[in-house]
């Protein structure tokens, strides 16, 4: 496609645009489909981006923390906790370590045993939270030292349950992107159908234009411009509505968990702006192919 042709498509020609009669139903269909698909695409993008953030956060936060579980007789628990804290403090790569208070441990068990759990009467192990430094620590070496000095200590670096969580979040991110691609494909299919309907409805117009000496590019341009502009305006409206709806979602909070984290943050608010542009590109390509195919059937 030459530069002149591209300029003609972008700038248009008022006379050429008038040559093709307005087709109400296909115009409305294209506009509605583009708006609806853009709205859904914004949500799919929000889901994908939020899932990505969640996967990164879980991966990052859980990777940087570990838990030491101390099982010891009640009279030795304080002594072994102090020894464990001393070992952890001496371990390179451990940023900080602290023993959870009885209240914190009771809060952790409350979902299963209730709030009035008499923790002091139960052989509950002491939990120590370990926060890893930037350089990281030698997990295997720490385990060896703990087994030598504190046989009742078990180091849990969260690997076992961190991996499926991160994988789940990454899967959600992929699903969001696949949804965006499917939305794009469905948009292309719907616009192709609408363009074909418009081309069929205007078969006589196209034939007359060919007979009076119109080039294929001239005829195609009239249809392609119209459908592209409809898709662009529809998608812009759908994007605006989608972004408004996403903005109205609750802010991310620990209490709300994953559901309140849906949405865009910072520069990612700019990402939905691509939706109308991509919608227009899809409409342009779909209508261009449909018009060329239809014109090819005419002499």
């Amino acid at each position: 496609m030459s530069r002149g042709t591209i300029r003609a498509y972008v700038l248009g020609d008022a006379q050429a645009d008038r040559v093709v009669p307005p087709t109400g139903i296909t115009a409305q269909l294209t506009f509605f489909v583009s708006a609806a698909m853009a709205f859904l695409a914004v949500f799919a993008l929000a889901l994908s981006l939020a899932s990505g953030r969640l996967a990164d956060r879980w991966s990052d936060e859980l990777a940087r923390s570990a838990t030491l579980r101390l099982s010891a007789p009640a009279d030795q628990k304080a002594e072994q906790t102090a020894a464990a804290l001393r070992i952890l403090t001496q371990t390179p790569g451990v940023a900080r370590a602290r023993a959870l208070s009885a209240e914190e441990q009771a809060a952790l068990l409350a979902p299963w045993f209730g709030a009035d759990l008499p923790l002091e009467d139960l052989p509950v192990p002491q939990l120590v939270e370990i926060i890893e430094g930037d350089s990281g620590y030698d997990v295997a070496g720490l385990r060896l030292r703990l087994s030598a000095e504190l046989p009742g200590a078990v180091l849990d670096d969260h690997t076992r349950w961190r991996r499926p969580l991160v994988e789940a979040a990454n899967s959600l991110r992929r699903l969001g992107l696949i949804a965006v691609l499917l939305i794009g494909g469905a948009t292309a299919a719907m616009i192709t159908l609408a363009a074909n309907a418009a081309l069929a409805a205007n078969a006589q117009v196209i034939e007359v234009l060919r007979l009076v000496g119109a080039r294929d590019s001239y005829i195609a341009q009239a249809f392609v411009r119209r459908f592209t502009l409809r898709a662009l305006s529809g998608a812009a409206l759908g994007m605006a509505a989608g972004m408004g709806a996403v903005a109205l979602l609750p802010e991310a909070s620990d209490a709300g968990g994953f559901l309140t984290g849906l949405g865009f943050q910072g520069a990612t608010w700019l990402v939905p702006l691509l939706v109308p542009v991509l919608g227009a590109v899809v409409a342009f390509a779909a209508t261009f192919v449909a018009a060329r195919r239809r014109l090819g059937e005419l002499r």
Binding site: V208, R210, G213, D216, R299
Partner: peptide, 24 residues
Amino acid sequence: RDQMALLRRRIGVVHQDCRFLDHL
């Protein structure tokens, strides 16, 4: 196809059914 379009600009045709664009 482009050459055919250009050729038709040198051949004026009056069709039996006129073939107008009714919206213009």
